[in-house]
């Protein structure tokens, strides 16, 4: 090194001078550090915000994905509802001679307010529906597997429950109460609808609600089912007392003379409306084992008179919006294929 220096006589001196100047002062380092910290804070804040947005939006997509799958499943199943009606004699009990032809069926379609009478479900959450459809569901694989059109008793309603299917190793602490869409599906080999005593007193589904119900989708707060007739000016089919208000029973008045159009008959159209909220909103209004007040007050007294359907739905949406709950309404008019409606 010392060999090189003489060629540039001024270098050493200049270098000494520069070295002395080139050191950082405390102030400079502090300024630089604080700028670095500021940049870090801004960047980390952005990353944090981004991950929050990512999480919340994916949560939202997820929530409505499961709601949509549930809705698709329910409408597909409902569309296949079947009664297999047939015409048969009505026998006079005394003379044992045939009196007239009647439409008869061994199956039943029942739709009514959830949580009232024998129908399961959360009161005010809309309607519950029970029917038979060829879902070919069986647990007796040895005898019934591969039979494609086995008829099952199925049904849908809204429950307010914990997740009943939680894997046992997952901490139960994170298993909140939520409104859920519940499906009843009775294995074909267990179906008891062909027993008239079961068919007439609702035991054809009440016997199975505890054992054969499964959660289809979470955070569904309302299921509104409205039977309708096509082409009529007032869409709701039957103006009789039992039917105007979101109810339908194929086993009602089957023996009156003349037999009404709905006796042992499926409704031609059912308008299915489902209201789903997202998980973060549900978490926000969580009230433990009690139903959140926001939802109960938003649903109270709604969907009991079919004439106010649009109005009720509007009010429900406004109440949810006011409570800053993200929701989505799924609605579709389902034509029931097997319905042989004629007036």
């Amino acid at each position: 090194m010392s060999d090189v220096l003489p060629a540039y006589p001024g270098t050493a001196a200049r270098r000494r001078e520069e070295r002395g100047k080139s050191a950082f002062t405390v102030l400079e380092i502090l300024v630089a550090t604080s700028i670095l910290v500021m940049i870090l804070v801004i960047v980390l804040g952005m990353v944090d915000q981004l991950s929050k947005i990512w999480r919340s939006s994916s949560e939202r997509i997820e929530a409505f994905q499961s709601a949509r799958l549930g809705f698709d499943l329910m409408t597909r199943n409902l569309r296949q509802a079947t009664l297999n009606p047939y015409l048969d004699y009505e026998i006079d009990p005394t003379s044992l001679s045939p009196r007239r032809y009647l439409r008869k069926s061994d199956l039943r379609f029942l739709l009514g307010p959830a949580g009232k009478d024998d129908l399961p479900g959360v009161p005010d959450s809309g309607q519950a529906v029970f029917f038979q459809a060829p879902a070919s569901y069986t647990l007796d694989a040895a005898n019934c597997a591969g039979l494609d059109s086995l008829i099952n008793t199925s049904g849908y309603y809204i429950g307010f429950t914990r997740n009943t299917a939680l894997p046992p190793h997952v901490e139960t602490a994170v298993n909140p109460y939520r409104y859920r869409l519940i499906q009843l599906l009775v294995p074909a080999e267990k179906k008891n609808i062909y027993d008239p005593s079961m068919k007439d007193n609702e035991k054809w589904f009440t016997d199975y609600v505890d054992t054969n119900s499964r959660i289809v989708a979470d955070n569904i707060i309302a299921l509104i089912l409205r039977p309708q007739a096509p082409g009529s000016t007032s869409p709701d089919i039957i103006t009789g007392k039992a039917y105007a208000d979101y109810t339908y029973d194929s086993a009602l008045n089957v023996n009156t003379d003349p037999q009404p159009v709905y006796a042992n008959q499926l409704p031609p159209i059912v308008q299915v409306t489902m209201v789903a909220i997202d998980e973060s909103s549900a978490k926000h209004i969580d009230a433990g084992p009690n139903q959140p007040n926001v939802i109960t007050s938003a649903l109270a007294g709604k969907f009991q008179n079919a004439a106010n359907y649009t109005d009720d739905l509007d009010k429900l949406e406004k109440a949810l919006m006011a409570a800053r709950i993200r929701y989505r309404v799924f609605s579709s008019a389902i034509p029931i294929r097997e319905s042989l409606w004629s007036k």
Partner: peptide, 30 residues
């Protein structure tokens, strides 16, 4: 359930459980 290949014990400390809803086919993560 997925887990660290070296994890010991009946329930690993960190797991990734995927559940399929038998009715709809929707998966849920625990």
């Amino acid at each position: 359930t997925l887990q660290n290949a070296k994890a010991q014990g009946p329930v690993p400390a960190n797991y990734y459980t995927i559940q399929v809803n038998p009715v709809t086919g929707k998966t849920t993560i625990f």
